[in-house]
């Protein structure tokens, strides 16, 4: 056996547990969804078939378009806020904190919530945003409003707030990682050449941070596009998103319809990611 063949065999052998798990729980399920999206359904069950009814219904329904537009809106606003906040926080940590232990400590503070429950973190907004919550009471006592604001909790505002709360760290981590790899002498050189702090930020740091920004963006975009819990919980069931439509169809046991919706969602997300991947080679970033 040649060395090349032996290496390949060894590689596949070591990767086999990974390949088996992902084949059963990722590849096969996606294939199952694609197949079932062509099946027919009755009120209680579904049966093998090959028909396009699920897709024709989905793609000609006016609801689909409006739900997608709403989901894109959630995605765009959340992405923008996550980017602005995430970039600023990462920039502060990477370039303004001078001692490594402090840097690590502050970075940990930003990442710890990632290891706690998202559901609990959503529930935590109730006492703050509720009708008699902290936000309303503060604004009332300051005399800024006469009546409690009704749109704080269970609204699209709350949905976006929760998204930003949950997902900003997906932006901070890769952006911070990219920033820490920037050779500090480049910044010295820019300063020596007379660049202002702002010019260094926009002409040196921002371009070199692009890979991190793209990885963070891929996370934020896919998490928001596929979300169904945050939208349901934070809007009090009043707002729609693509994920929620699918989860409702699942709730009604309409698996073929849910599958067709899922296929369209997957294609949409993959298209968005392939555009973003044009800007970065992920394998180089590890």
């Amino acid at each position: 056996m040649g060395t090349q063949t032996r290496q390949t065999l060894k590689g596949w052998l070591l990767a086999s547990p990974l390949v088996v798990i992902l084949s059963i729980f990722l590849v096969l399920p996606v294939i199952a969804i694609v197949v079932v999206s062509f099946w027919g359904s009755t009120a209680y069950s579904y049966y093998p078939d090959f028909q396009f009814e699920n897709y024709t219904f989905l793609l000609t329904s006016s609801v689909t378009l409006s739900v997608y537009l709403k989901t894109f809106m959630f995605t765009a606003i959340t992405w923008l806020l996550c980017f602005l906040i995430g970039f600023t926080v990462a920039y502060f940590l990477a370039f303004h904190i001078r001692s490594l232990p402090v840097q690590i400590l502050l970075f940990m503070i930003c990442t710890v919530p990632f290891w706690t429950s998202n559901i609990i973190r959503m529930i935590s907004w109730i006492p703050f945003l509720g009708r008699n919550g902290i936000a309303n009471n503060t604004l009332l006592s300051m005399g800024l409003i006469d009546q409690p604001l009704e749109w704080l909790l269970f609204s699209e505002f709350a949905v976006i707030l929760a998204f930003v709360h949950l997902f900003t760290l997906f932006m901070i981590v890769p952006v911070f990682n990219s920033m820490m790899r920037i050779d500090r002498s480049l910044i010295e050189a820019a300063r020596d050449a007379g660049a202002s702090g702002w010019q260094i930020l926009t002409n040196v740091i921002l371009p070199l941070t692009k890979p991190g920004i793209m990885i963070g963006s891929i996370f934020v975009v896919t998490l928001v596009m596929g979300d169904f819990i945050t939208v349901r919980f934070m809007s009090g069931g009043q707002s729609a998103s693509v994920g929620r439509v699918i989860s409702n169809e699942i709730g009604l046991l309409q698996y073929p319809a849910a599958s067709a919706s899922a296929v369209v969602l997957l294609i949409t997300v993959l298209l968005m990611i392939s555009i973003m991947l044009k800007f970065v080679d992920i394998r180089k970033e590890l």
């Binding site: 990974l18 390949v19 992902l22 729980f25 990722l26 590849v27 096969l28 399920p29 996606v30 199952a32 969804i33 079932v36 891929i218 996370f219 896919t222 596009m225 596929g226 169904f228 994920g243 699918i246 989860s247 699942i250 698996y255 849910a258 599958s259 899922a262 969602l265 997957l266 997300v269 990611i273 992920i282």
Partner: peptide, 19 residues
Amino acid sequence: MVVGSLIIPSILISLGVGI
């Protein structure tokens, strides 16, 4: 495959494995 596993919307895993 690994990247796909990370970026696939979670609801597809839920639905697909269920099916």
